[in-house]
Write a protein that binds this DNA or RNA. Structure first.
Lengths: 353, 353
DNA sequence: CTGAAAGCGCTTACAG
DNA sequence: CTGAAAGCGCTTACAG
């Protein structure tokens, strides 16, 4: 294992300077600091005392943390499972709390005694992931695709299955198929929209902007959505709801309004874990095993950290998703079902738009 | 902060011996080893290199890990929240993987650079919690009560609310009230059973053994349970289901069998988070905010670790639970509803038993 | 099985 | 802002 002396000579500075960089002393000049960080990352340096060199890998939220979502819970389960097969321990790090503003990510991670990181992306933090990868610190991004080289990631490949989901609705006879998307443009939602587009394009249809709904990714937002679109003009007869929380809110709200699923409205949801099986009626869904994302990310990270030559390991892994057809999809009603805000149910005939 | 020299003189040995104990060298004699561990815990020793003494607190499963349960997810969320208010970072440790058999828990934690631990109890690991507390290592048990002094714990106080839940059923007119319990005897399930007993006792009823069901704590087990008890003789008209996963399986299975809730069968569940609001009909439940358990545990642990005199801090915290009456409880049917294995519905008259 | 002492990795007051 | 050197905490080969 590289020690402070190796790093010093690699960077062409004294060991005192390396130590100062590792402890983020303000006195070190910018250019010297970045030379040292680069050398440390290249050599795979980690501070150590005798044998007790740290052997922590970290799970890092690049944005606000959200441990209570089913997605994150499944990630953790998979990470914990993979961890048991390695010699590493797991740390949970929150750079937002105590990374110093003038500190690079590598410095922060090294100061915490961490050897590699799994980056949990949230909206608007792709830049953070890129910055960390660029610094050369061992990292694997979980849940997002990247075009840039030299960035490792593991993501759920939902495009083809999303297409398949919409094709399923088309084959049932639906022509007014809505899609819900989150407010943020991440690669997951881009993929799901693209699957929707492709399925429609294959049968010569243009996506209709009025059938594309942007909603925050919470359960109450799913309920709101259903109220809004079923009371408006020209509602869809089927919905592809691309978020696991939103679909739960939506299905329950529909039933509260007396809308029968799938007779009045077909719904295809998205499931990160096992939720589809705990719903009644059982949910037709694009399924992803989020625990597998966690498992694969941690395994990959362990390989990278343990590798002789880290740059030789490149991880770009697409974990398959799959479609499960259950009880929330069926043929469309003769005409779209509307429910007015006062609860009146209107089954209108198709009209010009 | 105590260093290896202080510990050595406190224990009356050389620094070499202290170091050997910390690294679990086999050569050190049993009695010397335990003297050193005791001294280290008394002084709050943690290995350090200069300033970078470790500042990790750990979340430790005393049994098999289960991150994907809603309970654990909520715990993590609360722990993460409390963590942000401290100077500590979080580690996840699995003693089952790499604690050496001949190593004490304190030695293991110190070797990992951890300053204090939150112990997640599972069935049959109360002994582990007691052993760790006895060694004097800073620890807080989450989710269990203890009678022994000198053990810190934070638990959900579900006895009074469980009693209230059963009283609610009694006030609706139910006389055949069943209860489901997990297979293991932990303090949580003991409390819930005791609440059930007390509510029945207050109106002069003995609990009937045939209405007390032991089931594993998984969703499919809830479905099995409903099949079993509704097809058997003398089914209950109301059920208090003391596990969040079991109740979901049970409610959905009941509906699959055509049993109307609450008209045919009333159900009171248990909710660690927000699941009751995502069910249709909305679940009447004994509610506990598991994230609060996590929050309080971590806050308490941080206080203990930071205290001048650790033994002066004693944590024995009962977090309140509460009853929310929603849509799964109502008056009992005229007579208990039975559904035979072939799907035939039998509404039998009350009979002698 | 244990200690005295040499040595390692890192940090920091001092000097420029 | 950086280095040479003293010093700290810990580990370990050597000796008994």
């Amino acid at each position: 294992m590289a020690n402070i002396r190796t790093v010093a000579s690699e960077a062409g500075v004294s060991i005192a300077t390396v130590s100062r960089v590792m402890n983020n002393h303000a006195s070190v000049g910018r250019s010297v600091r970045s030379k040292v960080v680069t050398a440390a990352n290249r050599l795979g340096y980690a501070p150590s005392v005798g044998k007790r060199s740290t052997s922590y890998l970290a799970f890092v939220y690049t944005g606000p943390s959200s441990f209570n979502s089913p997605y994150d819970a499944m990630l953790m389960a998979g990470i914990a499972e993979a961890l048991d097969e390695t010699e590493f321990d797991l740390a949970i790090l929150n750079p937002q709390r105590d990374k110093k503003p003038d500190e690079s990510y590598s410095q922060f991670f090294l100061r915490k005694g961490v050897r590699g990181v799994i980056l949990r992306t949230t909206s608007g933090t792709r830049g953070v992931c890129l910055a960390i990868a660029e610094e050369g610190f061992p990292s694997v991004v979980i849940g997002s695709r990247f075009d840039q080289p030299d960035i490792n990631y593991v993501y759920g490949d939902s495009l083809p299955t999303s297409k398949q989901a919409v094709e399923h609705l088309i084959s049932l006879g639906h022509t007014r198929i809505g899609i819900t998307l989150s407010l943020v443009e991440d690669s997951d939602h881009t993929d799901r929209l693209e699957g929707y587009r492709q399925a429609l394009a294959d049968c010569g249809t243009e996506p209709e902007p009025r059938l594309m709904y942007r909603v925050p990714a919470q359960r109450p937002d799913g309920a709101q959505l259903i109220k809004r679109i079923l009371s408006g003009p020209h509602p869809p007869t089927a919905l592809f709801i691309t978020d696991p929380a939103v679909v739960i809110g939506a299905v329950n709200q529909a039933r509260r309004m007396g809308v029968v699923i799938p007779e009045d409205l077909s719904i295809i949801g998205f499931d990160d874990g096992d939720d589809r099986n705990d719903m009644y009626p059982q949910l037709t869904a694009v399924c992803q095993d989020a625990s597998q994302l966690g498992y694969e990310s941690l395994s990959a990270l362990a390989r990278i950290v343990s590798a002789k030559d880290r740059d030789s390991v490149s991880v770009r892994l697409a974990v398959p998703t799959w479609l499960e057809v259950h009880d929330t999809t069926g043929p469309p009603p003769d005409s779209p079902v509307r429910v007015l805000p006062d609860g009146t149910r209107v089954q209108q005939q198709e009209q010009d738009t």
